[in-house]
């Protein structure tokens, strides 16, 4: 077990270094100068001074080694060109909201997806099954930003069922801990639902096919022969059969969830990593763009690693060696 984990960690580290290097290369090789003054009154000497301050006057290999060394040894991503803040601090502030949103969306995605999959599998090829399959496909095909905008307009602005944006109310700093938590949940449910919906259709289709497949297996037939109820067969034995596949799907959906989070965060004014990345891109803030790319890579690699480890627990047929 530990050898497997070490091997995977080593592979993850190498992958991370490759992502870092590629991200740096893409940004460094792109034409242009992030310190070129946009204000006509700023003299060129001032731009030179800022270039020196951020180390941009050094040859590219030197810039790369300095940057990589600072990242690897001190987790120091430099300073934002726009705000002057240490990038690690800036993203540290933005990461928890993104983890909360994507975690909640993952929950929505699985609860909804598995629920719909169960309903569809309980009456295979019925009208209900067909409706669930068609609905899953439609939801999967709809772009997150459109669903988000419609949800805000109808559910938040129109019906007032949720706040239209942000992570907290303006008065949140005055609230006690329970009220503050409720306030965050009230802001969270709609973006989490929108983000979770986009992948729920996929989960529903996988769940359905796994459960139908299980019913045809010897184990499924044996369960039925033992007189177990259909609900118990699907809920307990069928889902146990589907679990490894669904778990694999979680690692595959992590990048989609993260990219979807960028859109959801912008639409719902959710102050996370996606928002920080968008602002950085708009304002040519290269250190933040590089770090946000790397954070995204870390999250995806970690999700994949966690899914692999959990998979070995769920499915004893999978060997760690």
């Amino acid at each position: 077990m530990s050898r497997f984990v070490l091997r995977r960690l080593l592979a993850a580290t190498i992958l991370f270094l490759i992502v870092l290097t590629l991200a740096f290369a893409v940004v460094a090789l792109a034409p242009g100068d992030p310190m070129a003054p946009t204000d006509p009154r700023i003299p060129p000497e001032q731009a030179e001074r800022l270039r020196a301050l951020y180390g941009l006057d050094q040859p590219l290999p030197v810039q790369y080694l300095r940057w990589l060394g600072a990242v690897v040894l001190h987790w120091d991503w430099g300073q934002s060109y726009r705000t002057g803040q240490p990038v690690a601090e800036l993203l540290f502030d933005a990461l928890p909201p993104t983890l909360l949103l994507t975690g909640a969306a993952l929950l929505v995605q699985y609860l909804l997806g598995i629920g719909l999959g169960l309903i569809a599998a309980s009456r295979p090829n019925s009208r209900l099954d067909l409706s669930v399959r068609v609905a899953s496909l439609i939801v999967y095909a709809l772009p997150t930003f459109w669903v988000g905008l419609m949800a805000v307009l109808v559910l938040a602005v129109g019906l007032g069922l949720a706040p239209a944006g942000g992570m907290t109310s303006a008065a949140a700093f005055e609230l006690g801990p329970i009220a503050a938590a409720l306030d965050v949940l009230a802001h969270l449910w709609l973006p989490a639902l929108v983000l979770g919906l986009s992948m729920a259709g996929d989960i529903a289709r996988y769940t359905r096919s796994s459960l139908i497949e299980f019913q045809a297996t010897e184990a499924g037939r044996a369960a039925r022969a033992r007189g177990l109820s259909e609900t118990r067969i699907l809920l307990v034995h069928g889902l146990a059969h589907a679990a490894p596949r669904l778990l694999q799907l979680a690692s595959v959906s992590a990048p989609l969830l993260l990219s979807g989070a960028v859109v959801a965060e912008v639409v719902f004014a959710w102050p996370g990593l996606g928002t920080a990345t968008l602002v950085a891109i708009q304002s040519r803030d290269i250190p933040v763009v590089l770090a946000a790319t790397a954070y995204g890579a870390v999250l995806v690699i970690a999700a994949s690693l966690a899914a692999d480890l959990l998979l070995t627990r769920l499915d004893p047929r999978i060997s760690l060696e």
């Binding site: 307009l153 944006g165 942000g166 968008l278 708009q282």
Partner: peptide, 11 residues
């Protein structure tokens, strides 16, 4: 603060 002007208008 919000990154998107449309989101602010909606709020």
């Amino acid at each position: 603060t919000a990154a998107d002007g449309a989101a602010l208008t909606t709020q």
